[in-house]
């Protein structure tokens, strides 16, 4: 007669057998020395595994974790400089455009006569602003602005990919 399979013995150890099978297994274990030896060896493994001891981490582990919790992810210095230079460039372009528009408005502005009302003045200024913006973003000017932005994007892209390449090189070295 074949020995009880390890699967059945494992289930027996874990208490997963139904009542009928449980009785059969117990009968076999009581009547056969070979069965008992096989079962005992498996049971011994189970007992030894139950007594496995956990390993210990270093003594300052908890304090290391706790000190790491408050920290935000630090941005590398090089990356900070890169982001700063790109954002400065974009801000400068925007300031340039705003300054240029303001210059055009105020250079065409004529002080109102004393009799003219304030609302008329506001109307003139807003009309001037609209006309200057229309002039600026139409025809030849639009092409120039587009070119400046495209150049800006190209330069930004170049620095961005260069920075990425250097970061990868640093990581692999």
């Amino acid at each position: 007669m074949n020995l009880l399979s390890d699967e059945i013995l494992n289930k027996y150890i874990d208490g997963e057998l139904d009542e009928d099978l449980l009785k059969q297994v117990e009968t076999r274990l009581n009547s056969s020395e070979a069965e008992r030896k096989n079962y005992y060896a498996l049971k011994r493994v189970h007992n030894e595994l139950s007594d496995l001891q956990e390993d210990n981490v270093s003594t300052n582990f908890t304090s290391l974790v706790m000190s790491g919790l408050g920290k935000k992810v630090s941005v590398p210095k090089g990356q900070k400089a890169f982001v700063f230079s790109i954002s400065s460039f974009i801000v400068l372009i925007c300031l340039g455009i705003i300054g240029y528009v303001a210059y055009l408005i105020f250079s065409t502005y004529t002080p109102p006569a004393e009799s003219v009302q304030v609302t008329e003045t506001a109307k003139n200024v807003s009309n001037g602003l609209i006309s200057e913006l229309t002039k600026m973003f139409s025809g030849k000017n639009l092409s120039i602005i587009g070119s400046v932005f495209s150049l800006g994007i190209l330069i930004t892209g170049y620095f961005f990919f260069e920075h990425q390449r250097q970061s990868k090189a640093n990581l692999s070295s």
Partner: peptide, 23 residues
């Protein structure tokens, strides 16, 4: 996987005669 691990360990200790005679 749990049963397989136990059985493999059991086969090893039987092979190495590490399990003492109790019968």
């Amino acid at each position: 996987m749990l049963y397989r691990s136990r059985s493999a360990l059991k086969d090893l200790i039987v092979q190495k005669n590490l399990v003492e005679e109790i019968l």
